[in-house]
Amino acid sequence: MHRKAELAVPAAMAVRPRSSRMPAQLDVLQSATGVVLALFMWGHMFFVASILVSKDFMWAVTRMFEGYFFFGRSYPGVVSTLVGGILLLFVAHAALAMRKFPANYQQYRLFMSHRAAMRHEDTSLWVVQIATGFALFFLVSIHLYQMLMHPGDIGPYASSDRVWSGRWWPLYLVMLFCVELHGGIGLSRVAAKWGWFASATARQTRRRLKLLKWGVTAFLLALGLTTLAAYMKIGHEHAAQAGERYTPEQYRSVTP
């Protein structure tokens, strides 16, 4: 047996048990990726809606994104890079948001019966968000892969031909509803979650957020449907020459 004094016991350091900081960070990232994607979708909507102004305007917007006005020629790779970035964000957001999905049939059933009994708007809207989010996994993947691989196929005729002759419009139509519902509900939920845009009373905040949410959603849906209809019409009229690219009047003599 050793005596105590002979043992060289190394000094121990007290460790205070600490919960992981990960749940907080994942929660913030879920909201943040969602907000960035939603803002991107607003911008996206205005870019595609440029066709409602004129073909020339849409052509110019497209060229601008391809760097035409900066470099003097088009680099569709710029579009691919942007698409790649959005794809990464999208995957991150999907992975983060998936944690909130019902994990099994029992949870699903509990929530659905709860929703049916409660007849409560925000509870029901959550189901819409889950359903649209699930659909977007697939819809957005298809769309982004296409854009990543064919970034040059954007333009007054190129897009219209894709929509009509390429039979992409059914996908776009479903995606439009999913995106606008998911984004609208999501944004207002994020605002409530973090206490943004708080009015004098909580009730007032809720009422305002609700109005804003439905207002924005209705506007974007209307704009989106009109835009899609415009591409379908152009695509239909241009079906015989599908594949031909649009050139604005003033460039027609210069560019082949």
Binding site: P23, D27, R99, M118, H120, R189
Partner: peptide, 27 residues
């Protein structure tokens, strides 16, 4: 500070709507 705690809340806000004492739960 975890998914069974505040980060599990999905902001469905039914709690805020039903609280009989009208507590500012959302806030």
């Amino acid at each position: 500070g975890d998914d069974d705690g505040i980060f599990g809340c999905m902001t469905l806000l039914a709690c805020d709507d039903v609280c009989p004492k009208n507590l500012p739960l959302m806030t």
